[in-house]
Write a protein that binds this DNA or RNA. Sequence first.
RNA 1: GUGGCUGUAGCUCAGCUGGUUAGAGCGCCAGGUUGUGGCCCUGGAGGCCGUGGGUUCAAAUCCCAUCAGCCACCCCA
Length: 442
Amino acid sequence: MAIQAVRGMKDVFAPEVRKWQFIETAAREVFAAFGFQEIRVPALEKTELFARSIGEATDIVEKEMYTFADRSGESLTLRPEATAGVLRAYIEHKLYASPGPHKLYTIGPMFRHERPQKGRLRQFHQLDVEVLDDQGPQTDAELMVMLAHLLGRLGLAKVTLMLNSLGCPDCRPAFREALIAFLAGKREMLCEDCRRRLSTNPLRVLDCKSEGCKKAVEGAPKILDHICEGCRDHFRGVQSFLSLANVSFQINPWLVRGLDYYVRTTFEAVTGDLGAQNAVAGGGRYDGLVEQLGGPAQGGIGFGAGLERLALLIEDKPEWQDGPGLFFAATGDQPRALAFLMAQKLRQAGYWTEMTSEDKSLKAQLRKANKDGARLVVFLGDEELQKDKAQVKSMADGHQVEIEMGGLGHFFMNFDQAQADAGMEDTLWEAFFDSLRPLMRS
RNA sequence: GUGGCUGUAGCUCAGCUGGUUAGAGCGCCAGGUUGUGGCCCUGGAGGCCGUGGGUUCAAAUCCCAUCAGCCACCCCA
């Protein structure tokens, strides 16, 4: 039996790849306009990096990582998210030494060992954006504005921006206590996971989708009522900058997210068009994380957007289906050789040019040209060489005109191998191109 | 990690109360006379019926396992 791809890992072919390129191009342009620099970091990191950044008690670290010992026995992990690796690189190369803020982005594969389904792969790809050495609410807003620009460029109107604040190390513990106290009385209503979360990560109970937990959470204290003055100001600032930029958002006090390092702002771009999955992008602020990973005490914020999920939401565009501009239909050895030479010249000049690799019937060559979506077909046969004129047909309307080959035909009939290295006269090619150019433009 | 559904030609699928050479549509290739595509007509190629095992005189069809996909839970991008 032939070998199959690893579960949850997909091959991506031509039409889909064009969609990815469209997304990546849009992203690069939007990010560049906001002053972001691309960086490329490894997909493989020491396991400890993720354990220390994402959090030991998170689902990702507990059960979703591709972790293994390499040949020297060191524990390595395929990155489940991008932030940790970017921060590691930032700290390792002391990028923090130059004045901030540092705006970075990276695009690449992430790995999580989950059960695959629609919009959920074991290897998936993210556009990941980070701003380091910055604490102000303006930056939080700016990141979301940038995300909105990108979604706009991609034509995704049915995406909602959800926003929340998780407080900071100063105010969250008090809220945490209040929440635990509240939930303690409703312990029997909670699902098994949430009973465990009660001690490990009680905020996550707020985000649980199980019926009992949703009910238990009704009337629970809200983080937004408990955050400190500093966090409150920050959150207000974020909102006012968003409003200033006319980016609409929805405050969702239950938006908690699965990574431990978030403080203050968290946000998620959600849609109803992805089956059970709803997030196309998500992120938040992580002041303190850089320090925790061995760098200076600098603030930071970032988000990741799922390439596959974005692609699922985007419709194919006809212009992605382009065919060659020129197609040579040549019959006979000499005309075929000339067509071969012409095709190389045209390709060198940047024109997508095709011909069949075998001497098939004219009809078959035309069929191929049609299937490829060629715009113009150039007929070359012995007769054309004799007359030094080629027939050029527009495939869209069937119109056919005769063009001068500017001596190419005659030259080529007297062309022998001894002269091949000398090349053909540039002026002959110029003349031929001059005949062809107006047709290629129309 | 849990549960449900599915796996037959390149693609979408039919066939599955077990029984002659496994079908269709689309796609592909070739022809419909002299050097011209699309539409139409004709012909052709192409299938370890996901894989392995079992039941049976006989398995695409029934049973088990396994792999993969889809859907949901969970989680998130």
